[in-house]
């Protein structure tokens, strides 16, 4: 669905990354601070341009997409969750429906926003002021906004849809963190390509279909969680001794010492 070939970007320090992000799967980008995770996500989302190399979305160079067509198929959850002016939660999520303006009915927009808020367990916040809810609640509300952006009820038309998320669970309590990871996996099963930058390696091991380990702007390892997250490579990437505990078919557990 998204194909990156030999992309470089000096600002952000990405060097020669080639990557295939499939539809219907959950891809986790992991790596230490400053490894280039956010830069890579931005490039894959078409939010910034690579100095060299190519990014394609749905078989077409991502820069060639009409902005509104792309916006209805690809949403991005940034790390920064600030909104300039006091706004009601429901109105904020409805901003995610802007690309559908004049194309679908107001009821359909509202239904998409409601579904998204229910999926992220934030429906009860809909009439609250966004600036007055907690950091974790804001993250779920913004997640609802980006889900609403690519939400199309009953769409089985095979059009590519992509959700890119920069540390979507950073401010969440353990219960909501697991709920959001399960939600993202379910969205992937429903056919959406999900890519997320993640710090929690155990979540990556448990929920991702594909893991990409970045270190100093290069891919250090990639593949299924068990293959990409070996103890030696994690140790060298994070500069702390990693131990990978495996028990049968369950997802491996990673501990740093």
């Amino acid at each position: 669905m998204i194909t990156a070939r030999n992309i470089r970007r000096r600002i952000g320090g990405l060097e020669d990354i080639s990557l295939e992000v499939p539809a219907g799967a959950c891809t986790a980008i992991i790596g230490p601070n400053g490894a280039g995770k956010s830069t890579l996500l931005d490039l894959l989302a078409g939010r910034s341009r690579a100095d060299s190399g190519a990014v394609e979305f749905g078989g077409q160079p991502i820069a060639d997409w009409a902005p509104l067509d792309l916006a209805r198929r690809r949403a991005f959850l940034p790390q920064s969750l600030e909104v300039a002016f006091p706004i009601r939660v429901m109105d904020l999520v409805m901003l995610g429906r802007s690309p559908y303006h004049g194309r679908v009915s107001a009821q359909e927009d509202r239904a998409a926003a409601e579904t998204a808020l229910r999926l992220t367990d934030a429906w009860h916040l809909r009439d609250r002021a966004y600036q007055r809810i907690s950091g974790g609640e804001r993250q779920r509300v913004q997640l609802a906004r980006v889900i609403a952006q690519i939400w199309r009820p009953g769409s089985q038309d095979g059009e590519p849809r992509m959700l890119l998320l920069d540390e979507p669970t950073a401010s969440l309590d353990p219960g909501h963190r697991l709920a959001v990871m399960r939600l993202l996996r379910d969205l992937a099963i429903a056919g959406i390509g999900v890519v997320l930058a993640l710090h929690d390696l155990n979540d990556a091991a448990r929920f991702a279909d594909q893991v990409v380990l970045l270190h100093q702007g290069r891919i250090l390892s990639e593949g299924g969680p068990a293959d990409a997250m070996q103890a030696e490579v994690l140790t060298s990437a994070y500069g702390a001794e990693a131990e990978v505990i495996r028990a049968g078919d369950a997802a491996p557990v990673i501990v740093f010492r």
Binding site: R47, L70, P99
Partner: peptide
């Protein structure tokens, strides 16, 4: 007006929503 609404999220986010 609608672009200004999108800009509440920041320029990059407004762009990501398809606004010019």
């Amino acid at each position: 007006a609608r672009v200004l609404d999108g800009m509440m999220l920041g320029e990059r986010e407004a762009q990501t929503l398809g606004f010019n």
